[in-house]
Design a protein around this nucleic acid. Structure first.
Lengths: 161, 161
DNA sequence: GTGGTTGCAAAGGTTTTGCATGTGC
DNA sequence: GCACATGCAAAACCTTTGCAACCAC
């Protein structure tokens, strides 16, 4: 059974909560790593052998549409899916300890307003991922800097290709 | 012919600057909207009929690797490509006309500084994607709103699934 | 000169579709 | 009950691969 949040969201989106969708969502929620639709089909079939391939694709569409999952680009040119709990959030990832801190929208909206004023945009949505050092790791990394800024080329993370 | 920046970057990445790559890059730079590899093949063939499908896929890999293009997730579960000029930049995607506008780092750094002050982070790198309506599309969308505010639930934009 | 690159065609995957049957609301 | 959802299998599509010929460096 998937989370209450997910089931509520699917229904709120005007879609039906079928056992298949519930199971797929549960599998998504059980592991925070992104997986392709095909991989999810395999995983899900272990628990519901009769489930069809197309059902998984269609269910994922439904879940993404309902805001219960997100699609992202995997490095191998395929789509990956992750379950979603918060509706609007952003991420700070500490490159030292790996902790992921969720940043609520209000903490970020100043920039949105700034951009709207400065460029005349209307910003409906933003996806912001920050990489750096968290407060806990800062003292440590100041004491023993790991590498020169030059050699530590910060590239885009894999999932964003 | 593609931009000087692109050609320099391809060479700097230890890859060869072939006429095919140069042409593909030029086509990418000529239109700021993301297109799939297949669509790019069609576009490019209009100017170089003999070019192979695989060449386009391999060239896009090379360009992404060299930092002259970026891959992102299209709504139809395919990969889309946009040309990249600035090295460190962020994206504004207009959900009306599909145009992708690059935002230079300085335009965005206020938020970084704000986060660092407010939370004690040290931000080394950020990937920011904004979705909304660009100045050109705003008058049009104000004049003829596409749907009622209620039905227009602000969901994740198409490009992110 | 030589190793990376290309074009071709075929193979290998992934995603979609049509339709009869089933089922959540 | 009815519209939406499912399962199946084939079709459609996208992407990769193997290999001989080529050419950018």
């Amino acid at each position: 059974v998937s989370s209450e949040t997910t089931r509520t969201r699917v229904l709120a989106a005007g879609r039906r909560l079928t056992p298949q969708r519930d199971l797929i969502s549960e599998v998504l929620e059980a592991d925070p790593r992104p997986r392709s639709a095909q991989e999810l089909w395999t995983e899900v079939r272990a628990r519901a052998p009769g489930i069809g391939r197309a059902t998984v694709f269609r269910a994922l569409d439904a879940l993404v549409d309902a805001g219960a999952a997100r699609r992202l680009a995997l490095p191998n040119r395929r789509s990956g899916y992750v379950g979603c709990s918060a509706l609007h959030h952003h991420h700070f990832v500490c490159q030292d300890c790996g902790i992921v801190i969720e940043l609520p929208e209000p903490e970020v909206s100043p920039l949105l307003r700034h951009l709207e004023r400065a460029r005349g945009f209307q910003v409906n949505h933003a996806r912001l991922d920050f990489y750096g050092t968290c407060p806990d790791c800062l003292p440590r990394s100041r004491a023993a800097p790991r590498s020169s800024p030059a050699s530590k080329t910060v590239r885009d993370p894999d999932y964003l290709g």
